[in-house]
């Protein structure tokens, strides 16, 4: 099911490009959007966060327009493993490696997305949790990767990092819309990109992009960076800290 995804997407890209060239609507106009904040700091008391996306519809005619917003997080390489019973024990026996998969993915829309846009467009722009491009690293000919792909999305949804259903787009007043996105405490740090599309009669008439940075900050950032950048120094510090605190604990309780 996943096999041929790349070539399928390439065909789609050329199909859509040709369509756009013919209709001459290549340049969708700009949709004004912004986020309530562009930086989220992960510190010791971090339990998750929310961000509000704002935007203004450009369509002013009576027909109105629909809004679809996608917020996706830093790319990750992920492995899905499958357990099978092996001499009585459930062990990981097979795996599929996926490359450059968004660590976080959320969609909001004013209506069911498959009614707003063609399936080809949804796939091309990766709109909708089932339309995220899940590219395999080293796929084996003839193997069915469907269950692995479903498992990836299922686990991401369970972790609160993907959302099975699109969120609501609220209208604050005529033309001004608002979307709430939530992040759990296990949100992967990195750069997040919000893409917002304004749709009229199945066509994207304007789009807007804005970014969000989620970073560890303060002591948490220092600890994480030291562990990553100078792991041996971190190891020595961890040991020294353990020796000191162990000695201190012994000394404190010997007096009492």
């Amino acid at each position: 099911m996943i096999r041929g995804w790349n070539s399928k997407r390439q065909k789609l890209v050329s199909y859509v490009l040709i369509q756009l060239l013919i209709t001459g609507s290549c340049l969708a106009s700009e949709l004004p959007v912004d986020l309530s904040k562009h930086n989220i700091a992960i510190q010791s008391s971090f339990t998750g966060s929310t961000v509000v996306l704002f935007g203004v519809q450009t369509a002013t005619d009576d027909a109105g327009s629909n809004i679809v917003a996608v917020l996706s997080g830093p790319l990750q390489n992920l492995v899905v493993r499958k357990k099978r019973k092996t001499v009585g024990i459930w062990l990981n026996r097979s795996e599929a490696v996926f490359e450059n998969i968004p660590g976080y993915y959320a969609v909001a829309s004013t209506g069911p997305i498959h009614k707003l846009l063609e399936r080809e467009v949804l796939l091309l722009y990766q709109i909708g949790v089932n339309n995220v491009a899940l590219d395999l690293a080293g796929a084996i000919e003839g193997r069915d990767y469907g269950p692995y792909r479903e498992a990836l999305i299922r686990h991401k949804v369970q972790q609160g990092l993907y959302f099975a259903e699109p969120a609501a787009v609220d209208f604050v007043q005529a033309g001004l819309f608002r979307v709430h996105f939530t992040f759990p405490s296990n949100v992967p740090p990195g750069t997040y990109r919000a893409r917002v599309y304004e749709i009229q009669k199945g066509k994207i008439i304007s789009e807007g992009v804005t970014e969000l940075s989620i970073r560890k900050a303060g002591l948490e950032e220092r600890i994480y960076q030291t562990a990553q950048d100078s792991p041996w120094l971190y190891g020595i510090l961890a040991v020294v800290l353990a020796l000191l605190s162990g000695w201190l604990a012994g000394a404190v309780f010997r007096r009492t």
């Binding site: 948490e220 041996w232 190891g235 510090l237």
Partner: peptide, 28 residues
Amino acid sequence: TANSTLLHAGTNQTVDIILALVLLLGAV
């Protein structure tokens, strides 16, 4: 265990000193 800590930190970056300190506080 000091050697394990050093090697785990050096090769796998899996030593969480915040977690270790909180557990130690309770354990002591």
